[in-house]
């Protein structure tokens, strides 16, 4: 008995040592500025004044009582949820195709990654051209295929601008999703499929009964990743629409930026950040649970 116990202790110690480098890295580089920001959210901290007095929850009251915050939250949630769902569906489809026995599989697996390698900052200006209402190739494509008669002004139309940005996000991020899901597919043992085939299960059945359940943790992980990535998305919004037309694409990231660097109110900027973190945690915990539920054997 005593031997077993000490072995468990030894194991735990080894486990802790394994986690140590990660803990150190994260606490050094992220926690300090993070705590500083949380502290700032309780200050009347304007870049334009020398004094930064403690103001209790005044920033929180101001942010939570402003329509701008809820509007931006709504824009962000619409954007994030749509993008993540579309990416999951397309990602699964692509991963399944690239997992099956097709010709030039390795080549396709590589070229599908290219969109992700194009720097976002360059992608966004190229899409400015593609979407351009007067000269854009998208209008040309849609007109010549007979889908529209009048040229669309995608980024200047309140009902289309967000969709335009989503399109770029999906284009840019789905490749990553695909590769992650593909990695997950590789992790499913072939023997299960073989057993299922012997049992006479069809492709559709084995997808829903074997593939999907086995992929669940990986899918939850990538969904989580994409949720956080898109919540943080700034470059696309900033360079494509700058939050416009009017406020149609003013996401939380743009609102935060504006508050901190155009209104110079670092206190309120940090406050939006703290509230944002809680919203995001609320979203993430269920996904996290799915991803890391203890495996039933």
């Amino acid at each position: 008995m005593t031997i077993r116990w000490s072995r468990k202790r030894k194991n735990q110690l080894f486990g802790l040592i394994l986690i140590l480098p990660a803990s150190l890295l994260l606490s050094i580089t992220i926690l300090t500025p993070l705590f500083r920001s949380i502290y700032t959210s309780f200050l009347d901290d304007s870049l334009l004044s020398a004094l930064h007095p403690w103001n209790h929850f005044a920033n929180y009251k101001a942010v939570l009582s402003s329509g701008a915050f809820y509007h931006s939250l709504q824009v962000t949630l619409t954007y994030v949820i749509s993008v993540v769902v579309i990416e999951l569906l397309v990602g699964i489809a692509l991963a399944l195709i690239l997992h099956s026995n097709i010709i030039l599989r390795g080549f396709f697996r590589s070229i599908i990654l290219i969109p992700w390698a194009i720097p976002t900052i360059v992608a966004s200006v190229i899409f400015l051209l593609i979407y351009n209402s007067d000269y854009g190739v998208l209008n040309q494509l849609l007109i010549s295929s007979g889908l529209i008669n009048e040229k669309l002004n995608i980024l200047n139309d309140a009902s289309l601008a967000l969709i335009g940005i989503m399109g770029i996000a999906v284009w840019k991020q789905t490749p990553l999703m695909t590769i992650m899901i593909l990695a997950g597919l590789q992790g499913i043992s072939k023997s299960i499929y073989e057993a299922a085939t012997i049992d006479g299960a069809g492709a559709t059945r084995s997808f829903f009964h074997i593939t999907l359940p086995a992929l669940k943790p990986v899918l939850a992980n990538v969904a989580l990743l994409m949720t956080v990535t898109n919540f943080q998305m700034f470059t696309l919004f900033y360079s494509l629409t700058n939050g416009g037309p009017v406020d149609a694409t003013k996401s939380l990231a743009i609102l935060t930026y504006e508050t901190a660097f155009q209104k110079y109110d670092l206190g309120q900027g940090a406050t939006i950040g703290v509230i944002w973190m809680f919203v995001l945690l609320l979203f993430s915990i269920p996904l996290y649970r799915i991803a890391h539920r203890p495996q039933e054997s």
């Binding site: 002004n153 200047n156 309140a158 416009g244 009017v246 406020d247 504006e258 155009q262 110079y264």
Partner: peptide, 20 residues
Amino acid sequence: NPKFDNAMNEASSLTVLATT
């Protein structure tokens, strides 16, 4: 006023709404 730049950003909404 250092917020002039921000004011101009808001003012652009006038132009956008008037033209669209």
